[in-house]
Amino acid sequence: MLKIAALRTPNMAPIDLDIGGGECVAVMGPSGAGKTLFLRAIADLDPNEGAITLFGAERGKFPAPKWRRMVTYLPAESGWWAERVSDHFPKDGAVGEMLDRLGLSEEALGWTVARLSTGERQRLALARALLLRPAVLLLDEPTSGLDETSIATVEKVLKARLAEGVSILFVTHDERQGKRLAKRCLHLKQGRLESEETWQTA
């Protein structure tokens, strides 16, 4: 479904990858290995070269904002541009349900961003991205800073998306988490793809 051919940046050696619909691939490696750069390049947030197609359609054919709504990158550090949480969300009924599924109260919409805890920020940012209903999710450490209960909640929501046919590429430092969600893992090191591993579990 998502085909990546020789994707590269000045700081990242060419990487090829095919992800099928409903497939989840983990990305692991020491810090500075280029995991974030890889996801950002796919979302076209940094200058990059190489060919990417989604359902056979070339990335360059889409205006960048449209591409990013279909192939959505969620950074490790969430960004907020308004004072109130609600200003970062669309005004429709799906928001409350999504927050509920991520273990957040709908009241959170009325709060100011400043009073959110790290974990709340992380889950709200994930909710914001999921509400776009992208075909591919690029998640950069989506559960770092969450407690075990919240991690389980988030993984449940991600698995539901996978079952719907959404593809997920996600960076994690926790191999057990990788194995809970993914069958394949890319190991990056110093800006290049070192090896690809297939996991039997999950």
């Binding site: 947030l45 960048a64 591409w67 990013r68 709504r69 959505t72 969430s78 541009w81």
Partner: peptide, 22 residues
């Protein structure tokens, strides 16, 4: 200073006009 917020908007598929507007 606002790099993280601007990139969050871009990553969510907003146009640069929306993301840079403020």
């Amino acid at each position: 200073r606002e790099r993280v917020a601007i990139e969050a908007r871009l990553a969510l598929g907003q146009t640069w006009r929306e993301a840079f507007g403020g």
